[in-house]
Design a protein around this nucleic acid. Structure first.
Lengths: 226, 226
DNA sequence: ATTAAAACATGACATTTATCATATTAAAGA
DNA sequence: TCTTTAATATGATAAATGTCATGTTTTAAT
């Protein structure tokens, strides 16, 4: 089993506040998992009883709505933790996590993490700040959904994917989402999303090659997104 | 100056975890404020440097969107705290708070609260749980905005106001919002909101008398809201 | 390699929602 | 009290978005 103290990923998460001794202990309780593209890490309503630390890969956090469609609430990637809110609230998770590409994650049981919560103030502060950041993001997202048009939201989402997850050597967005998934981030029908992507392509804002999307005119997209 | 330890309100907030001694100290640093309907408690971008404890009244937390309209992100009332996220993140507030009715609030400087954060684990845990609750709510709200129709959202919002803030002796909703404010909760144009209220009235779901709204058929509203 | 299934794309159309115009009513200030 | 302004209401219309149908392309499975 790999050692947490040698794991580069932890440097990016709240876990960076843990001491060498704490990390050593952590190595003993964690379990390592390989998750294939499309597989579910946990499901809405489940009792996860711990947190996942993402060592590699990206996943989507989705929530099923009353009408049966699901909405992508957030994308989470390497270096971030999953299930923190649920652990602190002591409630089942309110979102499902599904891998968008092959992932490597480590699971740390609740009992083991919670100990550090009381002992290590910097650690609990880090977790709290992350959750506060999520809340702020959620507020922003909410206002966008309420007040922006689908076109504006699409432009904004493309820029977000670009800025947050970067691009491949061929300039295409690193996160590859299906049209359906993209639609479920911006909150629209799949067909509307496809149609607008075509429009963007015709206007020279983006380039489409299969699932690959290349942002050609970032400034114009920024103007569109407001 | 009134004493925090005698304040009934604190029983409902995260502050309930504080000891008698801590509350006594708190009484000395807090400042008490009367805020009139329509007045601003703090504004988006401001450095608040502390938290507000709401002793009486209701306020709206709003966020200005790019198009100039503002969106009501949350209603906060008696017994709840304001500015927790900002304090923990050590950032300016991301929302403005405006009184919906005359309010009585107490301001506690950051320096004084943060001390209890380290000392009193139960207190920091309470604050964290509140923020986690807000995040969960925000996720739900997001999905609703993304996937429900305006009609469904209006029905849901009316039920929310009813269940959360209760009603007056004449059965009307206790929180009195303008059509404009209601529209800015559900994320629609004021006219659309007014029109749908009229429809609801015609269908016998609600009763309208000026600003007063009485829910006549809660079950039907629930069906509408999904 | 072949076939079946899923994802993508686009047209036609229906529905929802926003916008503009214009009354009417209620509230607030002089 | 009067007058001015803001809030509410409703119609007419435009614009945005969703839905259904259908064809094409891509992907996955046999």
């Amino acid at each position: 089993m790999s050692k947490c103290e040698q794991c580069i990923v932890r440097e990016f998460s709240s876990l960076k506040a843990l001491t060498k001794e704490e990390l050593l202990k952590l190595s003993d309780c964690k379990t390592s998992h390989i998750i294939k593209r499309g597989e579910v890490i946990f499901e809405e309503g489940e009792n996860v009883n711990g947190i996942y630390c993402i060592k590699d890969g990206i996943c989507k956090l989705i929530k099923l709505s009353a009408n049966g469609k699901d909405h992508i609430v957030k994308l989470v990637t390497k270096g971030e933790l999953l299930g923190q809110r649920s652990m602190i609230s002591d409630e089942p998770v309110n979102l499902s996590a599904v891998a968008l590409e092959d992932m490597h994650v480590c699971f740390i049981p609740k009992a083991d993490v919670m100990g550090y919560f009381d002992q290590n103030n910097q650690f609990s502060m880090n977790v709290m700040k992350t959750i506060c950041g999520d809340l702020k993001e959620a507020d922003d997202h909410m206002v966008n959904l309420a007040q922006k048009t689908v076109k504006e939201r699409l432009a904004e989402t493309l820029l977000y994917l670009h800025d947050t997850f970067g691009k491949n050597e061929d300039e295409s967005l690193k996160v590859q989402l299906s049209r359906d998934e993209l639609a479920s981030i911006i909150g629209t029908a799949t067909e509307s999303c496809i149609r607008l992507l075509s429009d963007f392509k015709k206007s020279g804002l983006i380039e489409l090659t299969g699932k690959k999307i290349v942002l050609k005119d970032i400034n114009a997209l920024k103007k569109l997104a407001d």
